[in-house]
Write a protein that binds this DNA or RNA. Structure first.
Length: 580
DNA sequence: GCCGTTTTCGGCCCGACTGTTTTCAGTCG
C-alpha cells in the first residue's frame, strides 16, 4: 500500500468535490468535501494517524460520512467511493478546471455535448467552430477560452511574496496618489503575509469608483483586462500576476478591507460570531437582524471591537485559534521588524557571498542592528566555495580584529557547517569550539527517506556546538519540494537539546514554515530570524522573516536575535543545554 | 454532507461581472 500522507487526504477530498460538481450534486455536499480538505490541511496534529485509527469523531466538519471515508483511505490506501466517482470521467478532464472562466457547468456541457475531455480537445473544438454553436457559448466565449489556454501555458499560477512585494507597493502608491482616493490598501493573502500568492487584491475608498477601475485597467503594466465594471476590475500584468481592484465608499472601506483580507475561513468564523450577536456582517456593513444597535465603524479595528474582540493582526487570520484568543484578550503581541537587534546567518566573499566582512557590517549597522553573525559555507559545499579549517580560523581572527576596532557594532564568528549524510558535521568539535556559534544545514543528499533524514538532523542537533539549525526542510518555494523530515520530532529535539531553529528569510525559503512556529514556541523552542544574506541588499529579507514570524504567532521574546548584544554574548557563553 | 443556547430538519454568504440571454446562468472571490 502506498504511504498515505496529509496531502493524499487533502487531494482526494478536493477531487471528490470536483467530481461531485461535475455530476451536478448538491452544492452543499460539494462544499462539505471541500471544507473537509481544508480542515485536514490545517489540522494541528497527526491527522493521518487519527484517520487511520478511526479517531476523527468530534472534529468539527467531519460527520459520519467523512470520518468513514478518511478512515478507509488512511487505513487501506484506497477509497472505493472515490474510485467509483473517478471512473465516471476521463482523467484529463480535470485540466479544464485550471482555465479561467470555465467551471463545472461549462466543463460538463463541453464534455457531454462535444466530448471535450482535455485542453487539447478543447483547443481543437474552439478552432473548429463547434463550441460557438453550443447554447450558452458564443464568439466571446471561444476567444476567452483560447486566451485562458495561452495564459496557462505562458504564466505561473502562484508567485513568491518577495518577488511581488516591490511591484505591489509601487501599484499601491500609484492608487494612493490618485486625487479621488481617500484610503487605500492591499488586502488578501498579501496582507496576511502568505509565503506565496495567487493574486493581489487592491482596495480604494473613493467617491468615483468607476473612474478608479478605469484608471486601474489602464495601468501600463497591464497584459490584459479580465474584467472592468463600475466598482471592480481585474487585470493581468505582463508578468502574469492577476490583480483585482475594489473601489468602495469611505464608509464601506473598513468592512471591505476586513472582508477582502480574508482568510475565507477566518471570515466565516467571524460572520458566525456576528450572527450570534444579532449582526450580519458583509463586505459593506453590519446589518442588525433584530433590535441590536448598529455599531459605529470608521476603522477596521472597530469591527472587531463591536464583536467584543481584540483587533486581529492580518497575519493571524487563518482560523487557527485567533478568534478564540481575541475573544479572551489573549492575542500575542507580535514581533516587529524594529525589535531585531542582530542576525546570525550571513555570507561574505569568503564563500559565495558578494560583499566583504566590513561591507556586510556597515550594511547591518545601517539596518539598525548591533551585531551580525558571519556563517560562510563549510568545505563540503565546494560548489559554494566553502571554507576549510584554515580559512575559517583566519576569518575568525579577522573578525576579532574588526571587533577590536569597532565600539558600536559586533561581528560574530560562526559557520554554516554542512550536516553530512550520516548526521556528522563537516568540522570537528575542536574547530567548532573556537567559534562564537554555529549554524548547521543540509546542502546535499536531499532524497533520504523521512526516518533517515530525521535521524541525520537529530544527530547534528545533539552536537553541543550546533547553536541553530539552518533552513530546516531545504525547500525552494514553487521550485523544489521540502525534503522528507519529521518536523514534529525535530521540534521536540530542538526543545530538548536547546537548539535554536532558524526562520530563513530568503523569499525562496521562508523555512521553517510558519505553520509550525506556534507549536515550536509552545514547546520552548527559540527562533532565529536569519536573512541568509549573500549580499548587503539581502539584509532586507529580514522584513519577510518578521512577517512570517508574525504569521507563526511569535513574539519578541521567542526570537533570540531580538536580544541585545550583551545578552547574546552571555547566552552564547552558557553551555548549550543550559541556555534559555 | 454537516450542523444545532431559536432548529435533529431545513438551512447552508452573496454580490459583481460577463456573455448570452430577452430576464438569467455561470464563474469568481
Amino acid at each position: 500500500m502506498a504511504t498515505v500522507t496529509r496531502e493524499t487526504l487533502v487531494a482526494t477530498l478536493e477531487e471528490i468535490a470536483l467530481l461531485l460538481e461535475l455530476k451536478g450534486a448538491n452544492p452543499f455536499k460539494t462544499r462539505a468535501y471541500r471544507q473537509g480538505a481544508e480542515i485536514v490541511q490545517n489540522f494541528d496534529g497527526d491527522i493521518v494517524e487519527l484517520a487511520a485509527n478511526d479517531e476523527l469523531k468530534g472534529i468539527k466538519g467531519f460527520g459520519a460520512a467523512l470520518q468513514q471515508k478518511l478512515h478507509e483511505l488512511a487505513s487501506t490506501g484506497q477509497l472505493e467511493y472515490y474510485n467509483d466517482l473517478k471512473a465516471e470521467f476521463p482523467e484529463t478532464l480535470f485540466e479544464l478546471f485550471e482555465l479561467q472562466g470555465l467551471g463545472p457547468k461549462k466543463i460538463k456541457a463541453l464534455y457531454d455535448k462535444l466530448n471535450v475531455d482535455s485542453i487539447d480537445a478543447l483547443k481543437k473544438a474552439c478552432e473548429s467552430g463547434s463550441i460557438a454553436e453550443l447554447s450558452g457559448f458564443g464568439a466571446k466565449s471561444v476567444e476567452k477560452i483560447l486566451s485562458s489556454i495561452a495564459n496557462r501555458e505562458k504564466f505561473a499560477d502562484r508567485f513568491r511574496l518577495g518577488d511581488v512585494a516591490p511591484l505591489a507597493e509601487t501599484l499601491l502608491d500609484r492608487l494612493r496618489d490618485h486625487p479621488k482616493v481617500s484610503r487605500s490598501a492591499i488586502a488578501g493573502s498579501y496582507r496576511r503575509s502568505k509565503e506565496t500568492l495567487h493574486d493581489l487584491d487592491f482596495l480604494v475608498a473613493t467617491s468615483e469608483p468607476a473612474e478608479l477601475t478605469d484608471f486601474f485597467a489602464n495601468f501600463p503594466e497591464v497584459h490584459e483586462v479580465i474584467a472592468n465594471g463600475d466598482t471592480k476590475a481585474s487585470i493581468r500584468l505582463e508578468n502574469g500576476l492577476q490583480c483585482d481592484l475594489r473601489a468602495v465608499s469611505n464608509d464601506h472601506f473598513p468592512f471591505a478591507l476586513q472582508y477582502f483580507s480574508g482568510s475565507k475561513e477566518h471570515n466565516v468564523a467571524l460572520r458566525a460570531l456576528a450572527l450570534k450577536q444579532g449582526l450580519s456582517l458583509n463586505e459593506y456593513d453590519f446589518t442588525p437582524s433584530g433590535e441590536t444597535a448598529v455599531p459605529e465603524v470608521s476603522e477596521e479595528k472597530d469591527i472587531y471591537a463591536a464583536l467584543g474582540l481584540q483587533w486581529v493582526p492580518p497575519e493571524l487570520r487563518e482560523n487557527r485559534g485567533e478568534i478564540e484568543a481575541a475573544d479572551k484578550g489573549e492575542l500575542p503581541e507580535l514581533i516587529e521588524l524594529e525589535n531585531l537587534r542582530g542576525t546570525f546567518h550571513n555570507h561574505t566573499i569568503a564563500s559565495d557571498g558578494k560583499n566583504t566582512l566590513s561591507e556586510m557590517a556597515d550594511a547591518a549597522r545601517e539596518h539598525g542592528l548591533q551585531y551580525l553573525g558571519i556563517a560562510d559555507h563549510s568545505k563540503a559545499s565546494f560548489q559554494a566555495n566553502g571554507l576549510d579549517e584554515e580559512r575559517l580560523l583566519n576569518q575568525a581572527k579577522e573578525i576579532k580584529s574588526f571587533n577590536a576596532d569597532s565600539d558600536d557594532f559586533t561581528l560574530l564568528a560562526g559557520t554554516e557547517v554542512d550536516i553530512l549524510k550520516d548526521g556528522s558535521l563537516d568540522f570537528s568539535d575542536e574547530i567548532l569550539g573556537q567559534l562564537d556559534y554555529c549554524v548547521a544545514s543540509v546542502h546535499n543528499a536531499f532524497t533520504l527517506d523521512e526516518e533517515t533524514m530525521t535521524k541525520r538532523l537529530i544527530r547534528a542537533m545533539e552536537n553541543e556546538h550546533v547553536t541553530m539549525l539552518g533552513h530546516l526542510t531545504g525547500r525552494l518555494l514553487l521550485k523544489r519540494d521540502p525534503y522528507q523530515v519529521n518536523i514534529e520530532k525535530i521540534i521536540d529535539c530542538a526543545a530538548e537539546t536547546r537548539t535554536v531553529i532558524e526562520l530563513n528569510c530568503n523569499p525562496w525559503r521562508l523555512d521553517m514554515d510558519w505553520r509550525w512556529w506556534h507549536k515550536a514556541r509552545d514547546k520552548g523552542v527559540l527562533c532565529s530570524i536569519n536573512p541568509d544574506a549573500h549580499a548587503t541588499e539581502q539584509l532586507q529579507f529580514l522584513a519577510y522573516g518578521v512577517r512570517l514570524a508574525r504569521k507563526g504567532w511569535l513574539q519578541r521574546q521567542d526570537v533570540v536575535n531580538c536580544r541585545p548584544i550583551n545578552e547574546i554574548l552571555k547566552w552564547l557563553s552558557v553551555p548549550k543545554d543550559k541556555r534559555s
